[in-house]
Computed example of a mutant assay.
Amino acid sequence: MASLFSFSAPMDIDVRLNDEHERRTVDVKLDGSAKESLPVYLDGESIQGTVVIQARNGKKLQHDGIKVELVGSIEMFFDRGNRYEFLSLAQELGTPGGELRQSETLPFEFKDVEMMYESYSGVNVKLRYFLRVTIMRRMAEVTKEREIWVHSFRLPPDVNNAIKMEVGIEDCLHIEFEYNKSKYHLKDVIVGKIYFLLVRIKIKHMELSIIRRETTGNAPNQYNESETITKFEIMDGAPVRGETIPIRLFLGGFELTPTFRDVNKKFSARYYLNLVLVDEENRRYFKQQEITFFRIPEN
Rank of each mutant, 00 (worst) to 15 (best):
Phe254Asp: 00
Arg200Lys: 15
Glu243Ser: 13
Pro258Thr: 03
Pro258Trp: 01
Arg212Ser: 10
Gly252His: 09
Asp262Phe: 10
Ala238Thr: 15
Gly237Ser: 06
Glu227Lys: 14
Leu251His: 07
Glu214Ile: 03
Lys193Arg: 10
Gly242Leu: 04
Leu208Met: 15
Ile245Ala: 01
Met206Phe: 12
Ile201Arg: 15
Pro220Thr: 01
Ala238Asp: 14
Gly237Asp: 00
Glu227Asp: 14
Glu225Ala: 14
Phe250Cys: 10
Leu198Pro: 06
Glu233Arg: 05
Phe250Tyr: 10
Thr228Ser: 11
Arg212Leu: 10
Leu251Thr: 00
Gly253Ile: 05
Ile229Tyr: 02
Lys202Asn: 15
Lys193Thr: 02
Glu233Cys: 13
Ile234Pro: 12
Glu227His: 13
Asp236Phe: 10
Arg213Thr: 14
Thr244Cys: 09
Ile201Leu: 15
Ile194Leu: 12
Arg248Phe: 05
Lys193Phe: 09
Ile247Met: 12
Val199Ser: 04
Glu225Asn: 13
Ile247Asn: 02
Glu227Gly: 08
Ala238Cys: 14
Pro258Ala: 01
Thr228Leu: 00
Leu251Val: 03
Thr259Tyr: 04
Ala238Lys: 15
Glu214Lys: 01
Thr244Asp: 02
Val191Met: 08
Pro220Cys: 01
Tyr223Arg: 13
Ser209Gly: 08
Pro220Met: 00
Gly253Met: 05
Glu207His: 11
Thr228Tyr: 00
Asp262Glu: 07
Lys202Met: 10
Gln222Lys: 13
Ser226Met: 09
Gly252Ile: 07
Glu225Ile: 14
Asp262Gln: 10
Leu197Lys: 15
Asn224Phe: 09
Thr244Ala: 02
Thr216Val: 14
Tyr223Ser: 07
Thr259Gln: 06
Asn224Tyr: 07
Arg261Trp: 08
Val199Trp: 00
Lys204Gly: 13
Asn221Glu: 11
Pro258Asp: 00
Leu197Ser: 09
Leu198Ile: 11
Tyr223Gln: 11
Ser226Ala: 12
His205Val: 11
Gly252Asn: 09
Phe254Lys: 02
His205Arg: 08
Leu208Arg: 10
Ala219Asn: 12
Tyr223Ile: 11
Ala238Leu: 07
Met206Cys: 13
Lys193Trp: 08
Pro220Trp: 00
Lys202Pro: 10
Met206Glu: 04
